[in-house]
Design a binder for these strands. Structure first.
Lengths: 149, 149
DNA sequence: TATTGTTATACTCTATAACTATA
DNA sequence: TATAGTTATAGAGTATAACAATA
């Protein structure tokens, strides 16, 4: 696993990736973060709000690749916890613009430095070759995920 | 992205991986396979039954990293579609042993050669460096997922 | 008593359809 | 009429707790 000989293109990459991503996600989904109290769904939305600055709900839904009604509920939870705030757009009063609060940014920072998260622990057990392979693949995975939007 | 200079260990690997895995999984979860009619959850369970041979429900739950009651429902669906069969253990009648049927194996094979699946399409758009990085990381991801069990 | 698996119940996340408010 | 977002409703997938059957 650490030193594969060839890098001929394999044909089973897509189905293997599908299964492994589903399996990791299943374990993550159950893991409500002890420090932040945020599920992966909430954390993902919060990170995207933070990244896109004041953002409309529609744009956020597109970036997160979910339908607007799904996001309405997610955002309501974030708002209820005081992690994002919304302001009605001055020019078009149908539109709300979302941004992270100070507390939201604090939790985001916390989530990025957590040492005891499930994946952080498992990553710590990788050897240097494995870690390097993972880090090289991360941008590729982000591309496959359609990051941004 | 294609030719990173150094491979110093980064500290943001775990949170980035968490977000990207969650995002890909979200898109996959919604994707019921056109060819097989199987969700990722059903496909994952089916693949594991096939891999572990005649397997008890408890062992399957452990391998899939879900609780037994969750698996009871998943297996019921697979059984209803004729993809797995169960046989009561001869020595311990509390135990059922599951295995894939001919039809189950046929769908598994089909799922492994699908060219139009969401990930297969996106992977086709990667350049050779990106593809190589992804393939090198796949065993690492499988290790992180705790494959097998 | 202990173990294997099921049933009952509830929660999260997501979707589509119908609606409201604004443009 | 068209668009941004919400409400109503439904379904998949997962969990925990309580139960039944067997050991």
């Amino acid at each position: 696993m650490t030193t594969p000989g060839l890098t001929l293109s394999r044909s089973d990459t897509a189905p293997r990736l599908r299964l492994v991503v589903a399996r990791i996600a299943r374990q993550l989904r159950q893991t409500v973060d002890r420090d932040t109290g945020l599920s992966t769904t909430l954390l993902s939305a919060l990170a995207t709000v933070d990244r896109l600055g004041p953002v409309t709900l529609g744009d956020l839904a597109a970036a997160e690749r979910v339908q607007p009604p799904s996001l309405t509920r997610v955002v309501a939870k974030l708002e209820h916890r005081g992690l994002v705030s919304r302001a009605v757009d001055g020019e078009d009063r149908r539109v709300s613009r979302l941004q992270t609060t100070t507390e939201g940014r604090r939790l985001l920072t916390l989530s990025r430095t957590r040492k005891n998260a499930l994946l952080a622990q498992r990553i710590r057990d990788l050897n240097p070759d494995e870690l390097a392979a993972l880090e090289l693949a991360l941008p590729v995975l982000e591309k496959l995920a359609g990051e941004g939007g």
